[in-house]
Every structure is written in structure tokens, then in C-alpha cells.
Design a protein around this nucleic acid. Structure first.
Lengths: 137, 137
DNA sequence: TATACTGTGTATATCCTTATATACAGTATA
DNA sequence: TATACTGTATATAAGGATATACACAGTATA
């Protein structure tokens, strides 16, 4: 089984983190449905040209978040998530990022209006980059 | 000269970074006016109970950003910033933080409306914490 | 039960970040 | 010019993050 993950070798962002973030997004957005059997750590390690221990770390981290379920000898599956918990998982990575941004803004006395304006510009910029880059990271 | 900087010893955030962020905010918000002579690296190191090299790094980083001006033997001053460049400096740390937040949000298919809602909640939460904590970090 | 898959645990190499000491160099002034 | 301040340069200690190899253990099935 092939998983759409793109690694940026030049980035300072660590391998395991790039993989975790992208795999989490695939699960939490529903692109990988509940119960799906993921590739084995050796298989995914081969696909991404990294060590199986790196993949194991990713699977472990996501299991700790409750997004994966792993059984020795059998493999790793996408966990079943309560419909009601869905948004909690979806936003678990988003909310802290926004809080950090607000912190930075408050430190330099940004007004609420300014933050909203900056947000709109950031969205515009990113949407634009997405449509340009196509499938790129 | 005393500078209002509070360090959180327990935090994982490195010393030099805590100092940089708070000093930058003091400058960029106008609480330290242009031309002000900052405490010497030895003086501030003593106040914050850290090495002079740590303070030097902070001054160097902020000088690289254009916020400080330093002269061997004389000391370190708050740089004069063009009124027109003021916002650029103010927002230099804010915009990347918002872009990172938007990236995280787009990865899990957040809508613009969702992001705006999350932003409002984050602002509410932080403002509340600020007023509770008084002068705390 | 042999085989060929799964995940697991331990031990380790490598690199980067953080923070430091200490000796050096420029500036002002008594 | 001696002194007492400024910042600077070099070298290094200590810790954590990242990534790995390799030997071990569970599961399914021919």
C-alpha cells in the first residue's frame, strides 16, 4: 500500500516530524478511513527511504494521540474515532498553532482587527501557493 | 538600568530566546525608545543571572534584525527605525506564526470560517490569561 | 512446525542547540 | 597613561534531538 507523503530533504524539519504531520492530516481529514491497514513499518521505511525506527516512532506518536492502533505481529490500523471526538482530533494541532500566533501578536500590541487582517492575508497567500504547487508540500 | 524581563526557569524555552522575545517586544512596541542606551551585557547578565555570552547573543540577534546598534567600548543602543518600517519590524515575528497556523489548519481541511472562529477563541483565551496574570509572562 | 511476515527493546552514533569561561580589543576619562 | 568601563573571539562542556542497527517477540499460514 502506498501512502502519499512527500519529504523535503533540504528542510530543517526532522524526518519523523514531516511524516507525522502529513500522516496525521491524512487520517484526521478522513482521507484514510477508519480500520485501514497501514503499510508495515518496513514497507513505509522503504518507500520513504528511511529507517524502520523512524517510521515506528511516527506510528507510536500517532497511537499515543489515539489516531492509530497497533498490534505486534499484525500491523498498524487507523483507529476508530467517535464522530463527536472528530473535531477535537482535527483541531488538536491547529489550536496551539493559533495560540502561539496570538501570543506573538499580543507581545507587539497587535489589535484584534490587525490579527484578523493578518490571518486573511496568510490564508490568501497559502491558498494561492496550494493551487500553484498542485500536489507539492 | 533595569529592564523588565521575566525568565521562566522551568520552561523548555531556552534562556536566550525568552530574553530575545521580550526585549524585542519592548523595543518594537515603543516601550524602549530610539537611542536608549541598554544595560551592558555584563550588567544585564548579572540582573538575569546568566552568562554575558547569552546576553551578547541576544543583542547580536536583535542587531541583525536591525533593532539594536552596538559599538565596541561604547555599548548597545536601541536603533532608529524609519516610521514607515515600523510595522514591518513589528509584524516580522507575527506573520510567520500566522502562516504556520494556517498551514496546520489547511492540512486538516479547515475552512476560512473555522480559522476565524479559532482565532477569536485564541484571542479571548490569551487576553483572559493576561488580565489574570497581571505582569506575569 | 517452518517460514515469512508483523511490531518491540536496547544500545548507540551523530549532530545541533544551548550555555559557558576566559582571554582579547576598543573607548572614555580621572 | 592607568583604570574601569564597553563589546568581541575562540574554544568547549553538556544535554537533547534525530536517526540508526540489530537482535528479539508475536501472528498467520503453507
Amino acid at each position: 500500500m502506498w501512502i502519499p507523503i512527500q519529504l523535503n530533504e533540504t528542510s530543517a524539519e526532522p524526518l519523523y516530524h514531516q511524516i507525522t504531520v502529513q500522516l496525521r492530516a491524512l487520517i484526521v481529514s478522513g482521507q484514510l478511513v477508519e480500520g485501514t491497514l497501514l503499510p508495515s513499518i518496513r514497507e513505509l521505511a522503504q518507500q520513504l527511504k528511511c529507517s524502520i525506527i523512524t517510521i515506528r516512532r511516527v506510528y507510536q506518536d500517532l497511537e499515543a494521540e489515539g489516531l492509530l492502533r497497533t498490534r505486534q505481529g499484525m500491523g498498524t490500523y487507523v483507529a476508530e474515532v467517535e464522530e463527536s471526538d472528530r473535531d477535537k482530533y482535527r483541531l488538536a494541532s491547529v489550536i496551539p498553532a493559533f495560540e502561539a500566533a496570538v501570543d506573538a501578536a499580543l507581545r507587539v500590541q497587535c489589535t484584534t482587527a490587525e490579527m484578523e487582517s493578518i490571518l486573511r492575508q496568510a490564508i490568501a497567500k497559502r491558498i494561492e501557493m496550494q493551487s500553484e504547487g498542485g500536489g507539492e508540500k
